[in-house]
Structures are given as structure tokens and as C-alpha cells.
Design a protein around this nucleic acid. Structure first.
Lengths: 152, 152
DNA sequence: GGTCTGTTCTATAAGTAATAGAGCAGATAA
DNA sequence: TTATCTGCTCTATTACTTATAGAACAGACC
């Protein structure tokens, strides 16, 4: 998994981290049991403060996607195959879905195109099924910078 | 169109207003040419500051959905039938779509269910086609409060 | 003991969200 | 002309968020 952050983005850093971990779980790059690097480690690799990583991990824990403890560090707690979503998730999520799809509709993207894009995205998630990937069981996260990063 | 805001929500008020105008355009409740109430009028009806409404309208103008001028006030500039989306919109939008769909996938919503929900939402937008609604051409916005609103 | 982990506290600087009041320019109607 | 409406701009304040930083604690591991 390659984690990249964009310091010049309007999206907060902690949210960029969260979004990318969520995407990695959706794709199958991270599965239940996968270990993530420690907050200080990842912060050092990304060149940011460890409190920012802490915030991202804490958010992921609140969403039920991460398990944190002193013993084993940060471990993925659930993935697409860990069972049904928590109660109430679908309702809350579909509200946001409606808002996002409405934006495309208002801007003139026709219904067919919208559903085609949805299908393509969802299809890209299932791509890694069956194999469970090449033992992605360790916190080997690549690091990539965009924006204000020095070339080091 | 009924505009309701939730003062206790984590979503900023100006964004709630924006989202609901976008949704109204997607559904067909507002079409190209529809007039919206003035900033001060809507602010008064909602019991909020007119600068907050101003911010929402300004956002909608930046997105190309609203036209603002001293003469005619706030007027919807485009809807689903006003032609193709502006260049670059689809790219930027699909990034957000991927993030949102990934969240559902990671939480265990299966691909089929996700696409079903997408289809249902998109279908609800096309519901008002053909008729163009019952002349929704005036700033007759209902107002509804949730959260900390006094019963007045 | 030393080092790693998550966790918690305080603190600061910069930015955002929402409030408020005042005023200007142009268009409209009494 | 006067009065009122409109969008628009300016300053200002309060509260919250974002990201930084340093310090410390408890538990696990070698």
C-alpha cells in the first residue's frame, strides 16, 4: 500500500489518511488482520506530526475499521468480507450518496453515465477477491509526497 | 421547495443550504430560470445571518449553478437538461465518488446492494421529467427548522 | 533497563464558521 | 425625488477546527 498525502490540498491531512486506508480496505489491499505502521512511524515517514496520524487512526477506530492497542499496534478490524455493516450505517451513508449523486445530476451528467461510473468504481473493488493478495500482512506502507514537500 | 436546516448538525449551515439547492435542481424542483429568495429574505425565514446564506449562494455560483445580479436576484443558471457538465467536473467528482463507495465496501455492503442504492437514488432524480413541475418559477421556499429552533 | 506501543494532557498558531453592523451601487416602484 | 429592494463588500468578534509541538504515563517486548 502506498500512502501519499497532498499538503496543498483543501482536504485535511488526517482525512486524506483515513480515506486512503478505507480505499485500501475496499480494494482488498488491506484485509482483516493487516497491521498498519505505528502512529509515530507513519508520521515520521510522511514528515508530519504524529498527532495528525493519531487523529486519522482514531477516526478509523470510531468507524469500526481499526483496532488499536499497546500490544499489537494498529490492526485492521474488518473488511468487505467481515459480515454485514453496522446497524444504521446504510441509512447515514445513503444520505451522503444522494447528495453526491445529486451534484452530478445537477451538473448535467446523465443518469446512465452516473450509473456506469458507479459500476466501474464498485467493480474495481472486487478485483482482488479470491486471492486475498500476496500476504499483505505487514505495515509495509510506501510513502509519497505531493505539494510542498522537499525532494529530500 | 422546502428548505430545512439543522443547527445541531456537524454539517455547516451554508453547506446544508447548498446541498439542498443542488438536490432540488437534481430532482427537477428547481429548473433553469427558477428564482430563489434573496439572501436577506431567506436568512430571515431561516432565522440565521444573511452572510451565511450569502456564502451558500456564492458557493453555488462558483459551481455554475446559480446566477446572481442586482437586477434579478438569485436565479438558477443550469439544471440537468442544460447540457454537458463543465470540463474537468467528471474527474474531480469521480474521485469523491470512489471515496464514498469505498466506505460502503469496507463496511461490508456488497457490490450489488451498493449499485441498487445508486440506481434507486438516480431514478428518484428523473421522476419529475417531462412535466417540468407545476411552474416552480418563484422563490416560494418553505422553511423548516430542526434542532435548537424555538417553536416561535 | 531500554525501547517500542497507544493514550492523554497542555499549548500555540492558523484557518474556518457564524455571528453582527455598516455601507455602496444599481435597479425598481411610489 | 425619495424610498426600498437587490447583490456585494468591508471590518470585527466569537467559537471551533486543523496542525503543529512537547511532555508524560502505562503496558508490552527484548
Amino acid at each position: 500500500m502506498i500512502l501519499s498525502i497532498d499538503l496543498s490540498s483543501a482536504v485535511p491531512i488526517y482525512q486524506q489518511i483515513r480515506d486512503q486506508v478505507v480505499a485500501a480496505i475496499a480494494v482488498g489491499e488491506l484485509v482483516e488482520g493487516s497491521a498498519l505502521p505505528s502512529t509515530r512511524q507513519l508520521a515520521g515517514d510522511l514528515g508530519i506530526n504524529f498527532h495528525t496520524v493519531n487523529k486519522a487512526y482514531d477516526l478509523l477506530r470510531q468507524e469500526g475499521l481499526l483496532r488499536l492497542n499497546r500490544k499489537s499496534g494498529a490492526v485492521v478490524q474488518r473488511d468487505a468480507h467481515s459480515g454485514p455493516p453496522p446497524p444504521g450505517f446504510a441509512d447515514e451513508w445513503s444520505v451522503r450518496l444522494r447528495t453526491l449523486l445529486a451534484e452530478a445530476a445537477a451538473q448535467g451528467v446523465d443518469a446512465e453515465a452516473v450509473l456506469t461510473m458507479c459500476g466501474r468504481v464498485v467493480g474495481s473493488f472486487g478485483a482482488r477477491l479470491g486471492g486475498r493478495g500476496g500476504e499483505p500482512r505487514d505495515g509495509e506502507l510506501g510513502v509519497e509526497h505531493r505539494g510542498l514537500g522537499e525532494p529530500a
